[in-house]
Amino acid sequence: MAKTTSITNTSSRALSVAREWSADATLRLVLQVFAIALMAIIVGFFVQLALMAAPVISSMGVAGFLFDNNWDVAHEIFGAWPLVVGTVITSVIALIIGVPVAVSAAIYITEFAPARLRSTLALLLDLLAAIPSVVYGLWGVFVLIPTLKPIERWVASTFDFVPFIGGAVNGPNYFVAGLILAIMIIPIVSAISREVLSTVPLAEKEAALALGATRIEVIRLAVLPHSAAGIVSAVMLGLGRAIGETIAVTLVIGNAAIIGQSIFSQGYTLAAVVANEFGEAEPGSVHSAALIAAGVVLFILTFIVNATARVLIMRRTVKRVSVADKVVA
């Protein structure tokens, strides 16, 4: 009898404990609130911007704002196409120049550099990120533009026949802006790539080595497959920075709201136009709405780029597996 009572007591106590709020549940709730708040901020931010951009959409239409090649503040015509094109061109140039340098540097530092050199190199690369962007812009204006101009002229006349290369050369232009952006994205792309590369399991590298792989083959066989997705994310972050970079670009791109004939023509980007014209735009005017819309486009652009990258990663993984079989068969 006594025994039964004690069992009943124990089980009822156990039940009451279960009903109490546990620390886990509280933590879970707090984290949930933060996570939802984060999403709410992003959505709210987007909605707010879209509302503020409404006047320009009602006057131009979405397609008109995006694809009209005419940004004329005086006549209140806001077709952002030249800005979109400028943003894409400068970012693409930045990636073409910056990513190979950044990834090579990361591979060199993690796989080849002697241990002593490793930390020094990494530190120097990280320091590049510490330079304020306005300094890059000024360096672009006073050093890069004058130095590059004769070279750009030579390239433009020698490779005249190549589309988007030949033609007149402006001092400030897409290429200079892209080059500056390349230098600016190198530290972040390289640092994240380095991080990713250093997580490749030693076991996989040794597997390749033990099969008679050379250092380069180890990288191809074990290191890159393991870090490809991470490197793509690094590139995406770099792209995000390139797309959104404002002050350095505005100093070296010429700020002309037209689509240049070649990469050596002057142009404009979405971020640069917002920085330059926001001071002059009257609050509540169509002009200020147009600038906010430019911001929304930037927002969406980064979003699309990111989504595309993710899809590419997924498809790549599937493809690698199926193609390999066909080669053998």
């Binding site: 399991p201 076991a203 996989e204 040794e206 597997a207 390749a208 033990a210 099969l211 008679g212 792989a213 083959e217 066989l221 074990a222 497959p225 393991h226 993984t317 690698r320 597996v321 390999a324 079989d325 053998v328």
Partner: peptide
């Protein structure tokens, strides 16, 4: 002189077939 390790270490994203053929392909 081939080697097999303590922890199985196939190339995880590579197909089973490609794993087997990794060595001959390398050489």
């Amino acid at each position: 002189i081939g080697m097999v390790f303590q922890k199985p270490n196939p190339f995880p994203t590579m197909s089973i077939l490609d794993n087997v053929l990794a060595g001959p392909r390398l050489s």
